[in-house]
Design a protein around this nucleic acid. Structure first.
Lengths: 122, 122
DNA sequence: ATTTACCTTTACGTTAACGTAAAGTTTGGG
DNA sequence: CCCAAACTTTACGTTAACGTAAAGGTAAAT
């Protein structure tokens, strides 16, 4: 039997609010089953949530996160669809690489600021 | 004589709207001088803008970007202030490193998706 | 002189991503 | 049996980060 989670289980684990999980359901991002009216999240829901939050940490909007997650399993389509998907994937890759360089630059600046700070403290 | 820029100069260079630049001024982020009523941006404004947009690409809010930029020049303060600044700097560093691993993971997933896509296309 | 292309201010509108409050249901413990 | 701790739905509120429209000033070119 697969693991199951209550709304508060996931909320606590990922440090988000119950409202947030309900909101994600409203948006069709998560589809927990129900026991009576109570939500029951599956292991798969949990994975989706994890991926979603990873995207959010990178500054992507919910919609972008959903789009990205949907790229992970190419549900096989026409050649045109595959081509289009491929382009989207490569576009995201490019964006992420830009972010990588942005982070490196910012880390350099912060490192230098940290050093100055430490020198002033001696 | 230092370089100067009109609002549209900067808007075009950084691919943002004039409104956005005015908005940043409202928020006190940029302080262009004026010729009559027309805004004149300095090289320093341009640098600030560049740093701001770099922060935005990483998903930081405007306020966070401002905070980060202000970390770059430790305007010398009391030991307590320097300590506090140091902690903030290190917190941001930690956050950026989290982002680095998030990006790496996402790039792995996208690479795998890309491969699948390419295989389906042959 | 008037059109064109800039610039300005003021001010209301919009969207995303939830927060928060109200009112009600269900369920295990004492 | 009753209470407290979970859960539910409905619905209005909030903030950030601009967009957009209205109404007008200025300067160079035609």
């Amino acid at each position: 039997m697969e693991k199951q989670y209550s709304i508060s289980d996931l909320a606590k684990e990922f440090d988000i609010s119950n409202r947030t999980l309900r909101f994600y359901e409203e948006k069709g991002i998560l589809q927990p089953t129900r026991n009576k009216s109570t939500r029951i999240y599956s292991a798969s829901d949990r994975v989706t949530l994890r991926l979603l939050l990873r995207g959010k940490r990178l500054g992507f909007s919910l919609q972008e996160c959903v789009d990205i997650i949907s790229m992970y399993d190419p549900e096989s389509g026409s050649e045109a669809q595959l081509q289009s998907l491929l382009e989207k994937i490569q576009e995201k890759q490019k964006l992420l690489k830009q972010q990588q360089t942005d982070i490196k630059l910012m880390l350099i600046d912060l490192k230098s600021a940290e050093t100055k700070c430490l020198e002033s403290l001696k």
